[in-house]
Design a protein around this nucleic acid. Sequence first.
DNA 1: ACGCTAACGGACGCCCCCGTCCACTTTGGC
DNA 2: GCCAAAGTGGACGGGGGCGTCCGTTAGCGT
Lengths: 214, 214
Amino acid sequence: MTDRLPHTLRSDASDNRERILDAARALFATEGLKVPMREIARHAGVGPATLYRRFPTKQMLATEAFTDEMRACRAIVDKGRAEPDPWRGFCLVIEETCELHARSRGFTEAFMSTFPDAMDFVAEREYALRSIAELAHRAKDAGHLRPDFVLDDLVLMLMANRGIHTTSKAARVAASRRFAALVIQAFQASPQHSPLPPVARLAPAAPAAPGKIT
Amino acid sequence: MTDRLPHTLRSDASDNRERILDAARALFATEGLKVPMREIARHAGVGPATLYRRFPTKQMLATEAFTDEMRACRAIVDKGRAEPDPWRGFCLVIEETCELHARSRGFTEAFMSTFPDAMDFVAEREYALRSIAELAHRAKDAGHLRPDFVLDDLVLMLMANRGIHTTSKAARVAASRRFAALVIQAFQASPQHSPLPPVARLAPAAPAAPGKIT
DNA sequence: ACGCTAACGGACGCCCCCGTCCACTTTGGC
DNA sequence: GCCAAAGTGGACGGGGGCGTCCGTTAGCGT
């Protein structure tokens, strides 16, 4: 033994790890987070024990599996913030976020649910929300975003977007696109809009079981 | 025996039946359709066998439990159609439908999902949609509803509304109310709106498992 | 008051998922 | 090539929901 702590995985192990992540990404996207761990293992061609040794909890697996989406999410808000026209940036964030979430059923659940252990998602969500808040502020000042818009409206929109289920992914993405366009229409400042009902206090939002991911 | 076919339940039986329906209504509203049958039985203070004898399938139970909501749904669209101003009627339908669905988590699932056996919900949904289509047509003619609105947009809105989950029912209703107001804003005809992305072909819509209610 | 029978609910067997243990296999440094 | 350690997957016990059977209880007509 040359090393007491081999932090480097054996070749077959890291190979399996990658296959597991691929399977998880695919199944989380199509089936959502509720997909059984064994299903992922089966799809990856490994035994349950291997899956559990590599990722002791489903949170850890989800966290790893969704790094791409998390990066994309951050990229979207950064791109939106970089846009010279704040309203254009705001619209862009809504459009692309809706599409991103429409593409992966599981990511939305992970992103919206408040994980008790892994704080990654919460932190990332907070970052996104704060960025968008700043963007919204600028868009309001520019007179394009309705003045009574609040950040919770965006959370509301995201929650609503997740309700859109269809048979195929293509249909879901298309529906989400149209939904985003309608939402943007609703957020746009207009002389004719009547006052909105009061905002509801939206808790950090849980899909069904608060914090539990099963 | 005075009657060969006692179509009338014994007193304790009809009593239990009522308690089961009460429990089902309460649990379906708060927990959704996924609540276990035993849970309903337990909550009603009866054994599983009693529940299953009275309602052999969860569909039958749900169908009975949601008659009130179905009636309310029909009343809403009728009221909206009776309104002299079609746009006002259209808004009213959206507002009240959103609220109705926000009040009962399970009803939305039942209403949106396509039951393979019990056709009651499908028929009722079709009636509502046809009525609203006619209302929308008049609202368009009056120039208040945007011309590129299609009926699928309303289904989209309903699907989205079901995505709104919160901790308390009160918060959910409040959120739904605001959501409805925003949606109405989006549907309102306006000189400044840009063309919408193409409509997606929305299948009759299934919550997760198409047609299965478990 | 009685007895027939509808109605009841506890208990059963089934299946699926969970997380863990352990005997066997593979890797890679020497 | 050898062999210790890392890695593997089948198998296990636990838990929970499902739908049904059956011995017991109690409503109701006589």
